[in-house]
Design a protein around this nucleic acid. Structure first.
Lengths: 151, 151
DNA sequence: TGTAAACCTTACACCTGGAGTAAGGTCAAG
DNA sequence: CTTGACCTTACTCCAGGTGTAAGGTTTACA
């Protein structure tokens, strides 16, 4: 089977399949007499496996390990478990970081007057100034007083 | 002030500062007679601003816009507000994606026996097989019966 | 005065995980 | 015979820098 059909069936692009071969994630593909790559059922399984593993968020290097476990009938499920557990912790860590960032952004937004004036708590905050603290606009909403509760 | 001290004070690396100059995020830096870059107070403020904006998750291109707003005394706070609002939505989207990935990983983990045997629901799942479905190990826990509820 | 360390400069390669493009060979249909 | 779809390799490019090389400058110390 040619690479294009293989791409369609595995969910990867032809480009990606060639790339995986070039970095040794999959082994050199058998060629037809015309030089075209020729894939068969076991190759398709392997590539589908890789596509799913990538969808699960595993890096290429993780995939190398997962693939070797996939192909090793003497694997211990605990080895796989450990790898996935580690990945889960990575994902949790990234979620926490993003949530932290999210709450910072949310605070910026709620402090910004969102009008046609240049005074902006967002700019002030990023500039390291006290947001709006020393600017006497005379009509600051009360929400600014809730500021210190979030330090 | 030399670049090294500037890096220390702004929270960026010297490498990063040169990089920002090379891509035009900051303008060409004044040089001393020996060719060394020479930074002063306003440069430090600008670089600190960039460091914070990056910490908030803004891309370099976002930073270009934020910096121009920062330096424009006729800005409207609503413009800044909109940019930050958009960023917040991006972050929310990424959090949702990661949470979705997280729940998939979590399910994989709970389905894996985590022992010394090769039978592994994680591998099966990534291989596109029914996890453990056709494997008669004889001692599968009841949790596997709950599997079809998630198709 | 010598010299070694610590600083500075530019320029290039490298990282992830591919995507885009060029230049050319092959194959099937009309 | 040509057209278009497919295939090949090889190269560049993306973000946002980091690492390293090769060399110039400055400072401290003996």
């Amino acid at each position: 089977m040619n690479i294009s059909q293989t791409a369609t069936e595995t969910g990867l692009s032809a480009k990606t399949i060639r790339y995986y071969e070039s970095i040794g994630l999959i082994s050199q593909t058998r060629r037809k007499t015309n030089g075209y790559r020729d894939y068969e059922a076991t190759d398709l399984k392997q590539l589908k496996f890789l596509c799913r593993a990538r969808d699960f968020g595993f890096s290429i290097e993780d995939c190398r390990v997962l693939l070797s476990l996939y192909q090793n009938p003497e694997r211990k499920s605990a080895e796989v478990h450990e790898l996935v557990e580690k990945k889960l912790q990575d994902v949790d860590q990234r979620i926490r970081e993003l949530q932290s960032m999210r709450s910072l952004l949310d605070k910026l937004i709620s402090d910004c007057p969102n009008d046609t004036q240049p005074e902006c708590a967002i700019i002030d905050s990023m500039a390291g100034r006290e947001p709006l603290a020393n600017i006497n606009t005379g009509n600051l909403p009360a929400k600014l007083t809730g500021h210190e509760a979030n330090g």
